[in-house]
C-alpha cells in the first residue's frame, strides 16, 4: 500500500512539472505581454515599454525566466506578480485560495447527498410519476446556464424580496445564493449517475436474494443497493469537483466574490504570467490529489478493489 502511494505521489510530481512547463510556454505564445496590457494606449511608446520590460526582467531569455519561476515555487512565494507591483504571487492569490476550494467543497458536500437521494428515489420508482418529475427537473437544471440562474435568484431574493445581499463576500448571507447556484449542476449530474447505477444494482442477484429473504424494502435499498452505487459514483467525484472549481469563475463574477476563478481570468487578460501559472498549477494539484484520494477510497468502500503495492 505504502509503495503504491509513493509511486503515485512521484507520478503526481511529474504531472505538475509538465503542467508548469507547458503553461509557461503557452502563456508566452499568446501575443502581448504584461507591459503591453499595463500601458494600454501608451504601449506604442517603445522607449517606455522596453525600459519597463527590462525593469521587470521580461527581456531575459525565456529559460532564465522559467528557472526564476521555479525558484519562486521553491521559495514558497511563487515569485512576484507583474500586474500588482510589489506583491508576491502568494499574496495575490491568498484571498482566493481561502474561497474557491471551500466554495467548491461546500457545494459538493451539499450536492452529494441531495443528488444521491434524488437519484435513488427516481430509480426505485423507475417509470413512475416521481421518476418522470425528477428526470425532467434534472435535465432542466443541467440545461440552465449558471449565470442565468444567478441573475434570476438575485432578482427574486435580493431585489424583489430584499432577503439576501446582491453580491460580495464576507457574511453567511452573501454565501447562500452562490452556493445554491453552484450546487444545482453537480446535484443533477450526481442524481443522474446515481439513478443509472442504482437501476443496474437493483437488477443484481444479491438484491433479489435480499428481497427473497424478506428484508424490508428500505433496508434493501439503503443498506444493500446504495452502498454499491457509491463505488462507480466515486469515479466521477474527481471530474465533478474539477468542474466545480472551474465553474466557480462565473459565480464569482456574478456575485462579486474575489475567488481564484476570477483572479485566474484577470491574470490571463493582464498577462500576469506568474499568477496564471500558479493558479493553473493549483487547480491541477487539487484535481490530481482528489483523484488520488478517490483511488484510495475505492479500497475502503469496496473491499474487492483493495490496493497493494505488488498487486500489479
Amino acid at each position: 500500500m505504502l509503495r503504491y502511494i509513493l509511486r503515485r505521489l512521484w507520478s503526481l510530481l511529474l504531472v505538475w512539472a509538465v503542467t508548469v512547463t507547458v503553461t509557461f510556454f503557452a502563456m508566452r505564445m499568446v501575443p502581448g505581454d504584461p507591459i503591453t496590457v499595463m500601458l494600454s494606449d501608451q504601449s506604442g511608446n517603445v522607449d517606455l515599454a522596453e525600459r519597463l520590460r527590462a525593469q521587470y526582467g521580461l527581456d531575459r531569455p525565456l529559460l532564465y525566466q522559467l528557472f526564476d519561476y521555479l525558484a519562486g515555487i521553491a521559495s514558497g512565494t511563487f515569485g512576484l506578480s507583474y500586474r500588482f507591483v510589489g506583491y508576491s504571487v502568494i499574496n495575490v492569490i491568498a484571498g482566493g485560495l481561502a474561497i474557491t476550494p471551500i466554495l467548491a467543497l461546500v457545494s459538493f458536500l451539499v450536492a452529494l447527498p441531495i443528488g444521491v437521494v434524488l437519484g435513488v428515489s427516481a430509480a426505485v420508482r423507475a417509470g413512475g410519476w416521481l421518476d418522470a418529475v425528477i428526470t425532467i427537473a434534472l435535465v432542466a437544471s443541467i440545461s440552465i446556464p449558471s449565470f442565468a440562474l444567478a441573475a434570476v435568484l438575485v432578482w427574486v431574493f435580493s431585489i424583489k424580496l430584499e432577503l439576501l445581499p446582491v453580491a460580495g463576500w464576507g457574511s453567511v448571507e452573501q454565501a447562500i445564493l452562490p452556493i445554491i447556484v453552484l450546487v444545482v449542476a453537480p446535484t443533477a449530474v450526481i442524481a443522474r449517475l446515481a439513478r443509472t447505477y442504482m437501476l443496474e444494482v437493483l437488477d443484481c442477484d444479491y438484491v433479489r436474494t435480499a428481497r427473497a429473504k424478506g428484508v424490508r424494502e428500505s433496508l434493501v435499498i439503503y443498506r444493500h443497493a446504495m452502498r454499491n452505487t457509491l463505488v462507480p459514483l466515486l469515479t466521477s467525484v474527481g471530474i465533478i469537483f474539477g468542474a466545480l472549481l472551474s465553474g466557480a469563475f462565473i459565480v464569482e463574477t456574478v456575485f462579486n466574490i474575489p475567488g481564484l476563478g476570477r483572479i485566474a481570468v484577470e491574470s490571463i487578460l493582464a498577462r500576469d504570467y506568474p499568477v496564471t501559472m500558479t493558479i493553473v498549477l493549483l487547480f491541477t494539484a487539487f484535481y490530481t490529489l482528489i483523484n488520488f484520494a478517490v483511488d484510495l477510497l475505492y479500497g475502503i468502500v469496496d473491499p474487492r478493489v483493495r490496493l497493494t503495492g505488488d498487486a500489479s
Binding site: 481561502a98 467543497l105 461546500v106 458536500l109 451539499v110 452529494l112 447527498p113 457574511s171 453567511v172 452556493i179
Partner: peptide, 24 residues
Amino acid sequence: MNLFKTAGIGTTALSLLTYMAFAT
C-alpha cells in the same frame, strides 16, 4: 443521513469562519 449532517456542520462552520474573518 450522515452525509447531510456533515454537510450541514461544514456549511455552518465555514460561514462562521468567513463571517469572523471579513466582518468590518
